[in-house]
Design a protein around this nucleic acid. Structure first.
Lengths: 346, 346
DNA sequence: CTCCGCACGTGTTACGTATAACTTGGGCCT
DNA sequence: AGGCCCAAGTTATACGTAACACGTGCGGAG
């Protein structure tokens, strides 16, 4: 490893020479804080020179000088999970708008990062944006005292300066109420085998909601890794319970896809014999047949709002937490239970 | 925007003071080029001091000093497409191993980047890794003369220092031969409506292969945006052709998912009435029922090899191009055509 | 005994930027 | 007319690191 391509880009001094001013003036003009310090004519000359030379400020030098950077670290478990890819997209959009850099760390495992994320990216970070699963382990890691905003994680936890969450409890409520309204009473829960706040809330809300409804019952809870295969195995176990659940509530669309496969494999029709719901509204949801009833979590918004929250915090504000609205997307994978056990007539 | 958190991290001078040596020695030791210049005892003392202070070199200062960086820009159309997320994962893995930074630019549109990617990331990049679709537009953009490795793009194009491709032609050949062997003769092509080398090769290879097979015929070619919805509409058109294709070759698994939906919507069974194939082997492929016959493109390998190729180029070597092997994954969405029109008896 | 060379380090500088502190000329007020 | 202040710049410096170009002893060879 040597000779890493050196760029001979023009410096602010080159621009200064060309515009016939001092380097300091260039810095003032291009930094857009020249008002009242430089005449409009000269300012324009500087800008012209910069344009002609295709000048780009050297960010390394700027960071060094300022002792800070406009770069944010986003920590996610894995981008191959569409949900996190969308979180990233939202964060990246705002980062672009606000002209801050965004670097990414995705922990190879869903647990503790193998290597210190700050080691690789220690290019003087301004703050950290950490999403569920990743966030919890990161809180302990300390993060070098950087301002931290947690996404889809327990509010008021750790030293986070802010928290941004989709309204997970409401989301689960929407799902359960939808199924209850259809007449379902025997529920199965295909849960994510991940120790994370967001999934704990789902389990708690589901159990609570059913406990508050006479006649409703959580027949089975099966935990699974967040894959189709995992969802399939867990759903197979859940559907073997007695009495058999007429509705499978899945913590995730991937799990739901597996659940549908499991039902079919057991000779059950979806949604006639068993209803299946997911979480997230991934692309996957409309690929399935029937299309998956799910609840849309605003992933992009999560990333975008998280980034804005972090930037606000960096600006000195104390933003606290935000809760993002969610939306039920009823599709074909849910229907009235077999034997029309609906309470509300017909 | 102000007061972006300043970190008061220890500097190499702090380490030097603590170890009782000069800053230069610290630089030598920690840079691991002290052999024969510093006694082992002192070197160890320096390392100990660095450890105790939790010293991390300031990357901004280092980049500034060196005039180069160990940061690579990866350009992809969108990470929400699992294929590119996997490319990124591969590139990120190697980047981690080789201790180079990786920044990401994903063009909001699949076409030309809205903003100059180098503007945001101009933190002195060492090189650029650009994947299909993004690569083509980038080649014209020039990239500031940075070493560029293109992924899944036309070899020997533009100023690229290297190219890494999955063997797209072989991939299409595998698909077509698989279908021909099953007895299919009437083909439909659900093509991506994206002007990119990788899709041009698919179309060319499909046409060529069929032209070389007596009795085989490409009945319909329909172009679609790379979404399930797009695939569905295109497949509907293709299946309306006369004679109706018994096999739909899709440029992508998303398109294939749409094709399956279209077939069902028209009252056709998959695979009994029509076979469907995809490309990429996304997670989606095993969620569908029947599971999708597809060809696995080594996305992670693509990113990883691309990164290695770029690093080799930066090291002064002239790596040229690499071709990555692909693999047919036969699953349930393909079968013998109806009316058992197979030529090979039975 | 002198002198060379090696082993082991250190002083110093430059990278490109942002900004505090200073300079200068001219207009306005008294 | 004299003083003063403001507009419009400039000069100088520091940020943290890497690496070049120098010391300094000390052992052995001549």
């Amino acid at each position: 490893m040597s000779e890493t391509g050196r760029q001979d880009r023009p410096t602010s001094r080159d621009v200064a020479r060309r515009a016939g001013v001092s380097q300091a003036t260039v810095s003032l003009v291009l930094g857009d804080r020249w008002r009242g310090r430089v005449s409009p004519a000269r300012a324009e000359a500087v800008r012209a020179a910069a344009r002609e030379l295709a000048y780009r400020p050297n960010l390394a030098a700027r960071s060094l000088r300022l002792g800070r950077s406009r770069t944010v670290l986003l920590v996610v478990p894995a981008l191959t999970n569409e949900f996190f890819a969308r979180v990233h997209a939202g964060a990246a959009r705002v980062a672009g708008e606000e002209d801050v850099g965004l670097v990414l760390y995705h922990s190879p495992e869903v647990v503790l990062p193998a290597r210190d994320p700050f080691a690789s990216a220690s290019a003087s970070l301004a703050g950290v944006l950490a999403s569920s699963m990743a966030a919890e382990s990161l809180a302990e890691l300390g993060g070098g005292g950087l301002p931290l905003v947690m996404l889809d994680s327990e509010p008021g936890r750790g030293g986070a300066v802010g928290t941004v969450n989709p309204d997970i409890a409401a989301a689960m409520r929407l799902v359960v109420d939808h199924l209850l309204a259809l007449g379902h009473r025997a529920f199965g829960h295909v849960a994510a085998a991940v120790d994370s706040w967001t999934f704990a809330v789902r389990a708690g809300e589901l159990a609570g909601r059913l406990a508050g409804t006479p006649g409703a019952r959580l027949v089975a809870t099966e935990r699974a890794p967040l894959t189709i295969e995992g969802g399939m195995r867990a759903a197979e176990r859940a559907l073997a319970a007695e009495p058999r659940p007429t509705a499978l509530v899945c913590d995730d669309d991937l799990l739901a896809a597996g659940a549908v496969k499991a039902a079919r494999r057991m000779g059950l029709r979806v949604p006639e014999d068993v209803s299946v719901t997911g979480f997230d509204d991934l692309t996957l949801a409309t690929a399935l047949e029937p299309e998956l009833t799910t609840v849309r979590l605003p992933a992009e918004e999560l990333g975008a709002t998280g980034m804005r929250t972090l930037l606000a915090a960096l600006g000195g504000e104390t933003p606290g937490g935000a809760r993002l609205p969610v939306e039920l997307v009823p599709r074909g994978s849910t229907a009235r239970p077999p034997r029309a056990a609906g309470p509300d007539g017909r």
